[in-house]
């Protein structure tokens, strides 16, 4: 994997396990994160994202496995790691009756900042998070969700942490607000490692260098967007809109590429145009060749041709679907019945 080749991994996780009562929340996950990366943690609800982040921030201990964050072994000194990271918990609970500036002062002192350094850091954090002076004088209880989230992030950034862990930073925010968060991460890119969990895919797609997809307490896959696309969607999918029947089109396509499969056909409008979706294992070059070939055949009357790139959503769904089926108890049982 790409992270392993990078120097100085800031997070190293090996076979981490955690259970809550009967529920095995983490079933042994391993990954590592290099310095300055922005990592997206993806996964459906209950996949173990928050649990992993809490363990990494030293908030809760794991049951077994190893984890090193910023060079601190969590199993040995779990509390120590809190000195090195910034953490934004899920839902970002804040005391309602304090003013923003009071809250940040409190947090800064808790984190051991004193005197002019404390004031400087608070100013910088407010600045990074676009919290202007007027807002910082307001009570947290009266702030909108977006501002609260920014207060939480400002708190996470107070101590110039090398690693900032954000648990669902953009949940419930309007696009403009989440853009501010993205902008903040862009500003700090390279200096600070971000580990953020989300299930808003566009969000992660837009700003993360790499993503880790979790499902049912296991890492389903990880890598950059391209890597994931290559890994998961190893077929090129292309779409042809033509005024022809299925058989003749498929026949023409098979002349170029025997392996090409027709996935779907559906009528586009009343004129008889149909959309055909093919997939091939031989990549885009072959797809382009097919296009050039199809255009030359007048009978087929090809109107549109498009090579599709799978988006994160597709990857996410595919990655988690496979895992989902494996973990579906009913599914397993039914298979077992078949065997018997």
């Amino acid at each position: 994997m790409s992270a392993e080749t990078k120097p100085l991994p800031i997070i190293e996780v090996l076979n981490l396990k955690k259970r809550y009562g009967l529920i095995q929340a983490l079933k042994g996950i391993s990954f590592s994160v290099g310095k300055g990366e922005i990592i997206g943690f993806l996964g459906p609800n209950g996949a173990g994202k928050s649990t992993t982040l809490k363990i990494l921030s030293g908030l809760i201990p794991a049951d077994s496995g190893e984890a090193k964050v910023c060079g601190v072994d969590l199993a040995e000194e779990g509390g120590e790691v809190r000195n090195h990271i910034g953490f934004l918990p899920e839902n970002n609970p804040l005391p309602e009756e304090l003013r923003v500036i009071e809250y940040l002062h409190f947090r800064a002192m808790l984190k051991g900042l004193r005197g002019s350094r404390k004031r400087d850091r608070i100013r910088i954090a407010l600045d990074i998070c676009d919290l202007e002076r007027k807002v910082s004088e307001r009570k947290i209880g009266n702030l909108s969700k977006g501002y609260r989230q920014r207060v939480g992030i400002a708190d996470a950034l107070l101590t110039e942490p090398r690693l900032v862990i954000l648990d669902e930073p953009t949940i419930g925010l309007d696009p403009r607000q989440s853009a501010v968060t993205r902008k903040m991460m862009e500003r700090l890119r390279g200096e600070v490692t971000f580990l953020l969990s989300s299930h808003i895919l566009s969000e992660v797609e837009a700003c993360c260098d790499r993503m880790i997809i979790l499902s049912h307490g296991q890492i389903v896959t990880e890598g950059t967007l391209n890597e994931l696309q290559e890994e998961f969607i190893n077929r090129t999918i292309f779409e042809v809109i033509a005024l022809t029947d299925r058989m003749s089109l498929q026949k023409s396509v098979r002349e170029i590429d025997q392996t090409c499969e027709l996935l779907q056909d559906e009528p586009v409008d009343v004129s008889g145009k149909k959309r055909f979706i093919f997939s091939t294992e031989k990549g885009e070059v072959v797809a382009e060749a097919i296009l050039r070939y199809l255009v030359k055949i007048p009978d087929l009357r090809v109107f549109e041709f498009q090579i599709e790139r799978p988006d994160l959503e597709t990857i996410f769904l595919r990655a988690t679907k496979k895992n989902w089926e494996e973990n579906d108890l009913l599914g397993k049982r039914s298979r077992r019945f078949k065997i018997e």
């Binding site: 908030l59 918990p89 609970p93 808790l110 984190k111």
Partner: peptide, 11 residues
């Protein structure tokens, strides 16, 4: 409110 957890995230 969950602020206790927030508190615990500090050292």
């Amino acid at each position: 409110l969950g602020t206790l957890e927030t508190l615990m995230t500090a050292p």
